[in-house]
Amino acid sequence: MRTSYDAPKTLSRPDWWGDDALCRTYDPDEFFPEDWRRGPGKLQAIVAKQICARCPAITPCLDGALQRREPVGIWGGLDPDERTQLVVNRGRSTQAPAA
């Protein structure tokens, strides 16, 4: 029986957007404020979004969060309320106009 350590050394894993993410250099808790709507959590969310704004992986990060329906945290520069609103707005733009 072969095990993973028997795999050829020439095979590399595919590129992953997370390898380029700026958040990897920060404490993950910084991107998961307890209450992003008010108080210290709101300030924490603003700082996290500023980090995201400079990140080269912002688009695939957001796309992944939307696909997984992430319920918490700052992903792709958006908090949960903003991601929900984005999904709602996308749904409206794809609907056929009423006849």
Rank of each mutant, 00 (worst) to 15 (best):
G73E: 04
I46R: 08
I51Q: 07
R68T: 09
L43G: 02
E34G: 10
D81L: 09
P97C: 00
G18M: 05
G39K: 03
N89C: 05
C55M: 14
V87G: 04
C52T: 13
R83Q: 12
G41H: 02
T59Y: 01
R83V: 05
P28K: 06
A53C: 09
P33N: 01
R37F: 08
W17V: 08
F32K: 08
R54F: 01
C61T: 15
V87T: 08
G73N: 06
Q95I: 03
S93P: 01
W75K: 04
E30L: 04
Q44G: 06
R54A: 10
S93K: 11
Q67I: 12
P40S: 03
G76S: 15
D35H: 12
L62I: 05
R92G: 03
G76N: 09
C61L: 12
G76F: 09
E30I: 00
D81R: 15
G39R: 05
Q50L: 10
T59V: 11
A48R: 02
K49E: 15
G41P: 03
P14S: 12
P56F: 10
C61A: 14
C55L: 14
L62G: 12
P28T: 06
E70A: 08
R69L: 10
A45F: 05
Q67R: 15
A57D: 04
D20H: 09
T25G: 12
T94V: 13
Q85P: 00
T25I: 12
Q95F: 02
T59W: 02
V87K: 08
L43I: 06
S93V: 03
W75T: 09
E34K: 08
C55Q: 13
A96M: 07
D81I: 11
P56R: 14
R69G: 13
E82Q: 14
C52M: 11
E34Q: 09
W17C: 05
V72T: 14
G73R: 01
N89E: 05
G91W: 00
R54V: 00
Q95C: 04
P28Q: 06
A96V: 10
P14V: 10
Q67A: 14
A57K: 09
R24V: 15
Q44M: 11
T94G: 11
P40Q: 06
R92C: 00
D79L: 11
P28W: 05
D19G: 08
L86S: 13
Q50M: 13
K42V: 01
G76D: 08
L43F: 03
P97H: 02
F32S: 11
P33Y: 00
R37N: 12
V72W: 15
W16M: 14
L43E: 07
V87H: 03
D81N: 13
L86Y: 13
